[in-house]
Design a protein around this nucleic acid. Sequence first.
DNA 1: CCTCAGTAGTGCC
DNA 2: GGCACTACTGAGG
Length: 198
Amino acid sequence: MPRSKEQDPRRSTVVVRESAANRVDKQRQAETMRFAIAPCSLGLVLLARSDVGVTAVFLGDDHEALRAALHDRFPHVELTDGDAATELLASEVVRIVDSPAAGIATLTASLDLRGSDFQRKVWKALREIPAGSTSTYTDVAIRIGRPKSVRAVAQACGANPVSVIVPCHRVVRRDGQLAGYYWGIERKRALLALEASA
DNA sequence: CCTCAGTAGTGCC
DNA sequence: GGCACTACTGAGG
């Protein structure tokens, strides 16, 4: 599902724009990300991080598929098994998923979000939606000052590389329908149910 | 129910 | 630059 193309802006080349200080020199030598996979009530969660912060939180049912998805997302990045710190972060995400009341969606690590300016603006807005509540694509569009960019907001939600932590699952249609979820609509439903009961 | 147009960001020529 | 995608929405059959 994640496209695999040379000039996908979510790619490591964007690091240049994201934070010049952390840029790996033109990717002459590949950047490295560590990742860890842990089981949770939704299946498996994969967390990846760069030297800057968390770059990905994927959901799935299969170790290999998750790893492949990570590679699709960051084709030029060298992936290595997580260290203790990465495993810890993965377990934090599991905790946030399985007990949203305790989690309060804060991770003890910074995020390294790779995307366009517009996408990061959307993702930032999503992080302001409190657990247990929902917003709509229209509301988010208004909040970022682009009231007509409703569909683009939805698209940006779908491109969110850091599920759960950037709670794109809390955005639903104006009419109350759940709309879609990259990791499966059932997971979106489950996440919202867990948060609602917390 | 269903279709349609408006609309804007992004992917892929 | 161009064209075809959408996790949208409100209006009109």
